[in-house]
Design a protein around this nucleic acid. Structure first.
Lengths: 119, 119
DNA sequence: CGGCTTAGTTTCATAGAGGAAACCGGTTTC
DNA sequence: GAAACCGGTTTCCTCTATGAAACTAAGCCG
C-alpha cells in the first residue's frame, strides 16, 4: 500500500472552516472589527467621529480600513454637501448582517472578563 | 469656553467596544480562529493532524499559536504516553464558550458567499 | 489675511508577523 | 545502522502592517 500515514479517520467538515477563513480575510486588520462595532452602535458616523472615538487609530489606518470595507460592500461612504465638507460612513444592509458576529465577539469579551475574575 | 469641538452628542457605549477589543487581542493572528474552529469540530486533535489539516500553516506558527491559546486557557495540551509520543490538544471548558463566536463567523462566511453570488 | 475645520494623502521609519528550511531527541521499524 | 514518525525548536530572512508626522485642498470665520 502506498499511503503510509494512517488512514485519516478525520471527517470532512471543511465547508465551515473555509467559511471561517473567508470571513477572517475580510475582517483582517487591527481595526476593522472595532470600526464595524462603532457603526453598529452609532449608525451614521463621520470620519472625525471615528478618528476621535476609536482609541489609538491614526488617520491613515482609518482611511485604509474604511476603503477596504467599502470595497467589500460592508460600508457606504457618503459625501455630504455641508459647509466644511463632511463624509458619513454607515453599514450597508449586507454590513448589518455582521451584527451577529460582532455581538458574539462582544459578548464573549464579557464572558472572558468574568472568567478571569472568577479564577 | 475651552472646548472648541462641538459637544459630543455621542452616547457612551464603550463597554461593548472594549469587550470587542479584549476578545480580538486574544484571537489575533492569522491562524487562531481557524485552529479553534478545528478543535470545535474535531474535539481532541494531535499536533500533526492540525499541521496537515490546516492548509498552509507552518510548524512554528502552529506551535506558537497553540502556546498562546494555552496561556489564555482556551486550549489544553496533553502529552500521551504512546509509542512515538503524541500530544493532544483540545478546548478547555472556557475555550468551548467561543463556539458562539466561531459559529457566527462561519455562518457569516456562508451568508457572504451567497451575497456575492446573488449580485 | 491668518487660522481653524474636515477629510484625507504622502512620506518615512520600524517592529514584528509570518514563512522556509534545517535541526533535535526519542522511539519504532526495516 | 538507516530511515521514518512525532512534536517541536532554532535560525534566518522578508514583507507588510502599523504608526508618527507633515502636508494638501477646500471652505468658513473674524
Amino acid at each position: 500500500m502506498n499511503t503510509k500515514k494512517q488512514a485519516p479517520e478525520i471527517p470532512d467538515c471543511k465547508e465551515q472552516l473555509i467559511a471561517i477563513k473567508d470571513t477572517m480575510i475580510l475582517l483582517s486588520g487591527k481595526w476593522k472589527i472595532q470600526i464595524i462595532g462603532w457603526l453598529l452602535l452609532y449608525g451614521k458616523v463621520r470620519f472625525m467621529d471615528l478618528l476621535r472615538g476609536i482609541d489609538g487609530i491614526a488617520a491613515k489606518m482609518l482611511s485604509k480600513e474604511l476603503q477596504e470595507l467599502e470595497q467589500n460592500q460592508i460600508v457606504v461612504r457618503t459625501v455630504m454637501p455641508t459647509k466644511p465638507i463632511t463624509v458619513e460612513y454607515e453599514l450597508t444592509e449586507h454590513g448589518k448582517t455582521l451584527s451577529g458576529v460582532i455581538e458574539a465577539i462582544s459578548a464573549w469579551g464579557v464572558t472572558h472578563r468574568k472568567f478571569l475574575f472568577k479564577k
